[in-house]
């Protein structure tokens, strides 16, 4: 074998990569060419050139950008929590389960409108996300499906104290629970990136699927897979 053939082969691989698509995920916005700009605007490329020449020129010069969100899985454990106050009984299972001990719950007797006959009002519900490692064991521990992982992750700021999620923050935050450990949401085809679940009733409660249900889902999955392959 002639010496140098492997080197040439390696250069062939890089050349193939050069001609192939780029796998860079651009964030938070994406530079687009004229075709991409037209596609984003929802019109054809000639249409863009004639109707909006300035935009087309910007796209040709490489200035045009469109905002993108990275694709996330529904189970993505975000950098925040979603909490339904009405469901929380203040049992502090989450606080006990937390490996780092960063959940602080203070309850007082005499709450109103509590679920399942409890009569505790939650005075404090602080989660220090600055120290949290997002293992989501608290979500797993919650017996009433009151605490969920959130899907948000753009929570950078300059002050450590701002990372502490207080009760007010949790109530005010948009409710986009992750489907992590919440199979009922997965079954209802809910996506945290498309909709919010402001009402606790929408979030549902988890009931263990029967073996029959599981079998049905699994067999159907397999069947569709095979039909695609065929």
């Amino acid at each position: 074998m002639i010496y140098g053939l492997g080197l040439a082969k390696g250069m062939g691989v890089t050349l193939k990569t050069l001609l192939g698509p780029s796998f860079t995920v651009q964030y938070p916005d994406r530079r687009v060419g004229i075709m991409g700009a037209a596609k984003a605007a929802g019109i054809s490329t000639p249409g863009l050139i004639f109707k909006r020449p300035v935009k087309a020129l910007r796209a040709v010069l490489g200035f045009e950008r469109i905002a993108v969100m990275p694709t996330q899985a529904a189970r993505f454990r975000g950098n925040e929590f979603t909490w339904y106050e009405d469901r929380c009984t203040g049992c502090a299972s989450c606080a006990k389960y937390c490996p780092l001990g960063i959940i602080k719950i203070v309850t007082a007797p005499g709450g109103i409108n509590m679920q399942e006959g409890e009569s505790y009002a939650i005075e404090t519900f602080d989660i220090d996300t600055g120290r949290c490692m997002f293992c989501a064991l608290c979500v797993e521990a919650c017996p009433y499906d009151a605490l969920h992982m959130g899907s948000e992750f753009e929570r950078g700021n300059y002050v450590r104290m701002d990372l502490v999620l207080t009760k007010e923050d949790l109530i005010a935050a948009p409710k986009r629970p992750s489907t992590w450990f919440r199979p009922q949401m997965e079954e209802s085809a809910y996506s945290p990136f498309a909709e919010t679940l402001e009402d606790m009733k929408q979030a549902g409660r988890h009931e263990t699927p029967s073996v029959e249900q599981l079998t049905k889902r699994w067999v159907e999955d397999r069947r569709t897979d095979e039909s695609v392959e065929d």
Binding site: A74, A136, M149, S178, P183, D221
Partner: peptide
């Protein structure tokens, strides 16, 4: 892994006795 357990590096997917949750439907394709 993100589809499976919501995290990419620090997975914490497994629990004594199995895994914490079945794989979602979009994992298999």
């Amino acid at each position: 892994f993100e589809r499976l357990c919501g995290a990419r590096i620090t997975n914490s997917y497994m629990r004594p006795g199995g895994v914490f949750m079945d794989a979602p439907d979009d994992f298999w394709p």
